[in-house]
Amino acid sequence: MSLSTQSLSPNLPPDTQREMLRRMLTIRRFEERASDDYRAGKIYGVVHCYIGEEAVAVGVCSALDRGDRIISTHRGHGHCIAKGADLNRMMAELYGRQTGYCKGKGGSMHIADFGIGMLGANGIVAGGIAIVTGAGLAAQMEGKGGVAVSFFGDGASNAGPFHECLNIAATWKLPMLYVCENNMYAAQTPAAATHALSDVAARAAGYGIPGVVVDGNDIFAVYQAANRAVDRARSGDGPTLIECKTYRWRAHTERRGQPDLRDPAEVEMWKSRDPIAQLEHQLREQGYLDDTELQAVERDIMGAIEAAVTFAEASPFPSPEQATDDVFAA
């Protein structure tokens, strides 16, 4: 992977590039805090961290408009933040509070913000792929040039909905991006043990659509691929499968005592390819960022996260009786 800014930075305005950095850093700091608070018993259930994969969500969402729709997985904080979700309501949801995005009914695995086109994290592997393909169908029927994006893992790419949806989206030329976050593992199982081909993207050929492999830790590579796919989708040419090769730094979940069977040297190798450090390096090379600016960004983010925690802690728990609300729409 070349670090030459010439070949990688797609002539994006400096503000856009700095915004990409800010979002990636926000995801990382948010999850570091969520993980600490989970260990402290303030966040319940199960938390899956996206740390190490931030360039995928931010790279893809940077190519979208506000009205475009995305769907996420069990590892959903990154997609929420990349699409512009409110940190206060996210943190309050993790804290199980009434002011959370789902009024405390969902938790980490189920944050959604339909107002910004974020159709939800999902606890069922591959559970979101058909739903967001339906959003793609809706965008096509609306005829306003909207697109929809399915984020899913390498593990999910082996489940039926992936194949069924790629076929129907290709056949109907739906304005879709299928973004596979190939972090090389599904829980403890290496992708190599469950995929006959090393590239998920190669499966696109079977459905007659473009399949591209990108370095998922290089935000510009992700952004460029997403941009091309968005153009194609908006012009009515149908879906694209984008496979982002990436890696999660942490264990599958934050649960204590959980096995992590991965080779520590492999983890270290991927940490040395930190997507955030790479972007930071490129911004500095272009003269778009210096220490003072970076510190200011960090301070802003830490302030926002601290504020989110304060908001969550000050928010009431739902009242027990609210358990029966929202089973049906009014």
């Binding site: 199980g96 405390g104 739902p318 609210q322």
Partner: peptide, 13 residues
């Protein structure tokens, strides 16, 4: 008769 909610206050109820 509800889907199981996340927040412990709700779940316990």
């Amino acid at each position: 008769q509800v889907p199981i909610p996340y927040s412990p206050v709700l779940e316990n109820h």
